[in-house]
């Protein structure tokens, strides 16, 4: 995997697992490009989770583990979305890991 990702003609640094090197560099286009690399076209439902993760990080300074994400999404966006089946349907590589990457966050704390 290369150490940068190109979005709208700009290069952004990423780590060896593809997570954005600098959280503050994030622009929505990064999520779109990362998703395209994973063969996902982002819908409003994806963006709900991506934006939720960015807000969660802003408030608590960590990327939540998957079961915490599931719980927190349920609280915020409704129980129909706060379950792993729904979240895995949006982010097949793991809702916390993949969605956090799209959101420009570090790899979630507590992902084993």
């Amino acid at each position: 995997m290369s150490d940068t990702i190109e979005v709208d003609g700009k290069q952004y640094g990423v780590d060896e697992e593809g997570y954005l090197a600098n959280l503050n560099d994030w622009v929505p286009g990064i999520a779109t490009v990362m998703a395209a690399q994973d063969n996902i076209e982002l819908t409003d439902e994806h963006w709900d989770i991506i934006n939720f993760l960015r807000e969660y990080y802003e408030e608590y300074q960590i990327a939540p583990a998957v079961r915490v994400l599931t719980k927190a999404v349920g609280k915020k966006l409704g129980k129909d979305k706060g379950n792993s089946k729904y979240l895995y349907s949006l982010f097949p590589y793991g809702p916390a890991k993949q969605a956090c990457r799209f959101a420009g966050l570090p790899k979630p704390t507590g992902c084993v």
Binding site: E59, Y60, Q61, I62, P64, V68, K71, A72
Partner: peptide
């Protein structure tokens, strides 16, 4: 702020 997630 991260301590406040311990409940979660």
């Amino acid at each position: 702020p991260t301590f406040r997630t311990l409940g979660d």
